[in-house]
Design a protein around this nucleic acid. Structure first.
Length: 352
DNA sequence: AAGTCGGGGTC
DNA sequence: GACCCAGACTT
């Protein structure tokens, strides 16, 4: 077994030379910026987050600016990033920080973890990066590194395995003679997992732990960490109405909970006949079949049957806070799910 | 403990 | 396609 006291010092030394130092949310102790990045990075890769992060900071430079913004603006800016409960919790968290903490994030892991959308690992990351607190993270990167280096068996999503990893991660924390060490250590865990100890083909040649790593020594990089148990994903089917009136389409707001919660989407029905009824109620005519679209989520597959309709007698009196005509040119102002956005974009293209 | 919640990167 | 990503939250 690798000497535990050596792990952190070797990781910190590696991070200072070979780690990432120029990500947009690094080189700052601004808790707001760090928090925003950590929420966006939950289950989301760095390259995906970067453009969203830049747009958010430009639009909401401070936690107070974010707290004061309408939730619809937040959802519109988040659209396409996924896991939309993160956006609602982000907004709620900003309001709690602004109104109950005087605009400053609390500095302890315990207090941070009480805020909406901040769990144990994210709290530790914020505390470590913003306040140099001695706290450990346990994200996908860390689970992979620990499983390989220390030969931790079992699927990390299983409670027993996860608990063991939390304990191991805690035991590996450096004593932190100076403030920057915990930050470099936490960043090192992430960097090692994201740049060398990757899932597919780990770059063991460059790894500071290659000579001690259980997975490397035993040639089991592909087996560790253990994969998630397979599970069949069901298929659902839905019919969507693209109701067009000149350069506008009709959007309806989805309920706050459930899939695409709080986003703007198209009128929907469970079958062809039900959609025809929805279309009739909305004054749609000349219903036209469009190419089906399939979208795979984490736990189910969605087959979409789009129908294009013309708003011949569109009842404007039906318009309310939950139903709007959105100009195609201003669709960015609405939070629209990615596959729905794809459908609307295809329509815009065909109009040109 | 198991289910819910996105979209895209990468092999 | 399969599998996962700087996970949190609900049931």
């Amino acid at each position: 077994m690798l000497a535990l006291t050596d792990f952190s010092s070797r990781l910190i030394a590696w991070q200072r030379i070979h780690g990432r130092h120029d990500l947009p949310w690094q080189n700052t102790r601004d808790a707001y910026r760090i928090w925003l990045s950590e929420i966006m990075l939950q289950q989301t890769q760095v390259s995906t987050v970067i453009p969203y992060y830049a747009r958010f900071l430009e639009r909401f430079p401070t936690v107070t600016a974010l707290a004061d913004a309408p939730i619809d603006d937040v959802m519109a800016l988040w659209a396409g990033l996924g896991y939309y409960s993160r956006a609602r919790n982000l907004h709620r968290c900003a309001q709690v920080v602004a109104h109950e903490h005087g605009g400053a994030f609390p500095q302890t892991v315990e207090a941070l973890a009480m805020l909406p959308g901040i769990g144990r690992s994210t709290a530790a990351a914020i505390a470590s990066f913003a306040f140099a607190a001695r706290a450990t993270i346990l994200d996908g990167n860390v689970k992979r590194v620990l499983a390989r280096v220390f030969g931790v068996e079992g699927f990390p999503g299983e409670k027993r395995v996860e608990n063991a990893m939390w304990a191991l991660a805690e035991s590996l924390l450096p004593d932190a003679a100076n403030k920057d060490e915990v930050t470099a250590y936490t960043q090192g865990l992430m960097d090692l997992g994201a740049t060398l100890c990757v899932r597919g083909k780990p770059d063991c040649v460059r790894c500071p732990f290659a000579s001690d790593c259980v997975a490397k020594v035993e040639g089991r990089q592909r087996e560790l960490p253990a994969a998630r148990p397979k599970k069949a994903v069901p298929t659902r089917k839905t019919w969507m109405l693209i109701l067009q009136d000149g350069d506008s389409v009709l959007l309806q707001k989805r309920p706050p909970v459930g899939i695409w919660g709080g986003l703007w989407s198209l009128p929907e029905a469970a079958d062809e006949a039900a959609l025809a009824e929805v279309a009739r109620d909305l004054g749609a005519e000349h219903l036209q079949r469009l190419a089906p679209l399939s979208h795979t989520f984490t736990h189910f597959k969605l087959d979409i049957e789009p129908r294009l309709g013309e708003a011949c007698s569109a009842p404007r009196e039906l318009m309310n806070a939950e139903t709007v005509w959105a100009p195609l040119a201003k669709i960015d102002a609405y939070g629209v799910p990615a596959p729905v956005r794809k459908l609307i974009d295809a329509l815009s293209g065909s109009l040109i």
